[in-house]
Amino acid sequence: MAIEDIIKPENLVYKKPDIMNDNSMHYCPGCSHGVIHKLIAEVIEEMGLVENAIGITPVGCAVFAYNYIDIDWEEAAHGRAPAMATAIKRLRPNKLVFTYQGDGDLAAIGTAETIHACNRGESIAIIFVNNGIYGMTGGQMAPTTLEGMKTATCPYGRDVKLNGYPLKITNLLKELDGMRYVTRQSVHTAAAVRKTKKAIRKAFENCMDGKGGANIVEVVSTCSSGWKMTPEKSNKWMEENMFPAYPLGDLKDKDANI
């Protein structure tokens, strides 16, 4: 069978979601941010929320997310996205309100906003992209940087005596009574991407059912530029080094008594 006979509208099984526009994304080749953007766009489309979703972009590589997904967005000051999400959701309770934050944004400068928004049980979803580094500013150490991992500001590897331990912030958030759904996923294989999509869907549904409670989907991610590896090698390195420190799976699901 000729290729032209297969490539027909009735045989379509996968395409970029419509609300992910044709602007070329500024991310480095292979960057996890792109996959996560695509999942958010897919879930919003599938839930019929294109006109009713408000995203909050961080400071970090994802600062321009609003250029790529055609929904409403607000840009927060560095780390303040959960505070802004709180205000927006309280004023517009019928909207889907979510933040999109890196590990520097969420677990360094924005730690206080993150913890308090979650502790208040705001009906928001936080998409937390943990690549263990400050990607945007050139690969400095983040709170999440692994022990021994080399970055621009710890060129000999993170020394826990000097810099403390990798901050497992999602594990901390799980303990808060305001937290409804806490999960850690990744997007390094097609199967992992499907799981992450389900997790984002669940977090977004929780935001819309009026029951309240905060939701976080951590996505353990790669930053091939910051890590100075190819995208392929980064995925392997992530499996071998990031997953033991940040194991994948659900940490809390109040609705399922987990």
């Binding site: 099984v13 395409k15 991310y27 080749p29 792109g34 996959v35 695509k38």
Partner: peptide, 13 residues
């Protein structure tokens, strides 16, 4: 599914 830039459209029959 894994393409970060949404470059690939897939057909099946």
């Amino acid at each position: 599914i894994v393409c970060p830039d949404g470059c690939i459209t897939v057909y099946k029959t």
